[in-house]
Simulated scan of single mutants.
Amino acid sequence: PENQATGENLAYVIYTSGSTGQPKGVGMPQKALFNLLAWQVKNLECSRQKRTLQFASISFDVAFQEIFSALGNGGTLVLVSEEERMEVSRLVRVIKRFEIERLFFPVVFLNKFADYCNNDVREIKMVKEIIVAGEQLKMLPGLQKLMRNVPELKIYNHYGPSETHVVTSYEINNGNYQNYDLPPIGKPIDNVKLYILDKNMKMVPVGISGELYIGGICLSKGYYKRESFTKERFITNPFISTSFNDSFLYRTGDSVRYLANGEIEYIGRIDNQVKIRGYRIELGEVEAVLS
């Protein structure tokens, strides 16, 4: 049969929280995800023919990375039960048994994992990469100890809202893990353009905080059947470049700044949104229920 699918077709719709109590469905096109996988294969050492643990819930966009970065590149995807996913000791036994080389973890679980594995790092000697996302990464003592105990280990701090998936990455290794208590979110991946703007939509200089806007091939198609919300968050790009597919910019609501070395530092939200274990929570929604 003739393949009629294009990069504009949706790969999935994933729902995010909202202040109205009605979660918004983010429609992610295939071209954005193909771009992410192509970048990952080119830049991450363990992307080809490796063993990856399928840890994330299918309701998280990280599950897409786990599944397709493994199966799309001749690798092996190892599934775990819900019980194994929730208990660090059982999960480590799975990692050892199947010789898992790459892990995708949320920040909270990564710290639990590090504390447990520091008792006997031989249990995870085969792990080469850990990709972390979902909320701001902190280099807690247990995680720093793990980097010392497993010097060949690399941690990749990924950043990206559901509306774009991953747009930046920062590598943490044995040579730089002590540089930051709060590691930066890094630099943009291929075919992604980032803008740090002030309230007047002007670019800010290095070291000055501003709101992060995202353009390029990574953008979703907006919110499914929610045109008003889409127009509010996806705005016309005043800096259109012919080298990028960036007719629109996604307004993240995140405050960031450029460091002197070109890395981007995450500062916090410009509104009252918070993240709990990777879930975006609008405090206005909680307030509405309580009132």
Rank of each mutant, 00 (worst) to 15 (best):
E2N: 11
Y12V: 04
E285T: 02
E66I: 09
E163H: 06
I267W: 04
N3K: 02
S228M: 14
M201I: 11
S255L: 12
I235G: 14
A5I: 15
R226M: 15
G160V: 07
L44G: 07
A63Y: 06
N261F: 07
G207T: 06
F55H: 11
L103Q: 03
A38Y: 15
K275S: 06
A114C: 07
S228R: 15
G27H: 06
E227H: 14
Y177I: 04
R97K: 15
F248D: 10
N237Y: 04
D198M: 01
G7Q: 02
S243K: 15
P184S: 10
E8R: 12
V166P: 05
A70T: 02
E99A: 12
Y213W: 07
K50M: 10
L37Y: 08
N179C: 13
T52S: 11
Y213L: 14
V94D: 03
L37A: 07
N3F: 11
S89L: 01
V92T: 03
N119F: 11
R51W: 00
N157Y: 04
S247Q: 13
P1E: 06
L153V: 00
N157P: 05
Y195A: 04
L182Q: 01
L182K: 01
A288F: 10
G284P: 09
N118F: 06
I100F: 03
E171A: 11
P141G: 01
K231E: 12
E2G: 08
T252P: 01
I264S: 10
T236M: 12
R122W: 05
P188K: 03
L44F: 14
E135N: 05
L283Y: 02
V192R: 00
L153I: 02
M147Q: 03
C46G: 15
K275H: 01
L33K: 07
N73H: 13
V92I: 06
M126N: 14
E171T: 12
R233W: 11
S228Y: 13
Y177M: 02
Y279H: 09
W39E: 00
R48M: 09
N157A: 02
Y279K: 10
S57H: 07
Y116E: 05
E45W: 03
S81H: 02
P151L: 09
N245S: 13
V167P: 08
V92W: 10
I14N: 10
S17R: 00
G207D: 08
Q144D: 07
V274M: 09
P183L: 00
L79S: 08
P184R: 14
L249H: 04
F234V: 11
L77E: 03
K275Y: 04
L143G: 11
L219D: 08
Q30Y: 13
D181R: 08
S47N: 02
S89C: 04
N245W: 12
P23A: 00
C117R: 06
M201V: 08
N179E: 14
T52N: 12
T230K: 13
E263H: 15
M86Y: 08
Y250G: 13
S69F: 00
E265G: 04
T6F: 14
L103R: 05
R277S: 06
K128M: 10
K42Q: 12
N191E: 15
N191M: 13
K145D: 10
M126E: 06
L53D: 00
G284L: 09
L110S: 01
P106C: 05
V150P: 05
G284H: 06
M203C: 11
L197Y: 06
P151F: 10
E171H: 04
P29W: 09
Q49C: 12
I240A: 11
Y159P: 08
I131M: 13
E82R: 14
